[in-house]
Amino acid sequence: MNNSRSGMSRALVRRETTAGYLFLLPSLFFFLTFVVYPMVMCIITSFFDSNMGKNTQDVFIGFGNYVELFHDPIFIGALKNTFIIVLVSVPVVMIFSLWVANCIYDMKPWLTSLFRVVFYLPVVTGSVAVTVVWKWMFNNRLGIFNYLFKSMGIIEKNINWLGDSKYALACIILILLTTSVGQPIVLYVSALGNVDQSLVEAAEVDGANRREVFWKIKWPQIMPTTLYILIITMINSFQCFALIQLLTSGGPNHSTDTIMYYIYYNAFKLYRYGYGNAMGVILMIIIAVLSAIQFKLGQSDS
């Protein structure tokens, strides 16, 4: 009797497991086809001299592309620019969005919603539209920045913001910040709203001031959100591409090249697919290592 029951139970488990796998199958198919397969192909192609020619055979060159990468001054410059963007934008986005969220989350609901809409608007607006507006604002002849700064006596003559290697990268970072803060603010507002109020009240009864309440009570509770925001902001900053392509095309003189743009430039402008893929692998390793470190730090904090 027992044997028969356990046999039925095993059959049931097997049937449910099979059903579970079948439900997973569509997403697994897309994951394997559009994520895993391209990743594997990217790694494989990075060891070849591949130029897209139909009649030319890809030539295996081992680590040739990787060796060339680290002797390529433009790649080194792109790597440097990418890290500058990440190192500036990630802390600024994190701090600014946490500050804004902390200021608005306990306001009247309509006021909180209003601020959320204001900051989220650049995120939902098409990146091309946003970029075109910024391009006009930075225009060297008609741009509003030149007009304002000249009116205030800060500059004497017009500056070609996007055409001058001294300013171009800073302009890109500024635009990136405006389009990056929306989502973290919304997430932080939500996380702060979910903080256990009884703990906050208890701390206040015990005489904790606002700063202590924030760091001792709220901060630990919003840590998972902080970790999530940190990682997505970092990945978005590493993958900054559309802004560069639409605003400067990596110029002037490669001063705004990032790894993402340089991958595109080599693969689609110069048709050096193997070389572009080698850069993709390097970028993947950098992001994976930094994400792992952040996860580790986040776990030890919690």
Binding site: N160, G163, T248, P252
Partner: peptide, 8 residues
Amino acid sequence: GVYFNAAE
């Protein structure tokens, strides 16, 4: 009178 414009 001629300007090399890298932003255009």
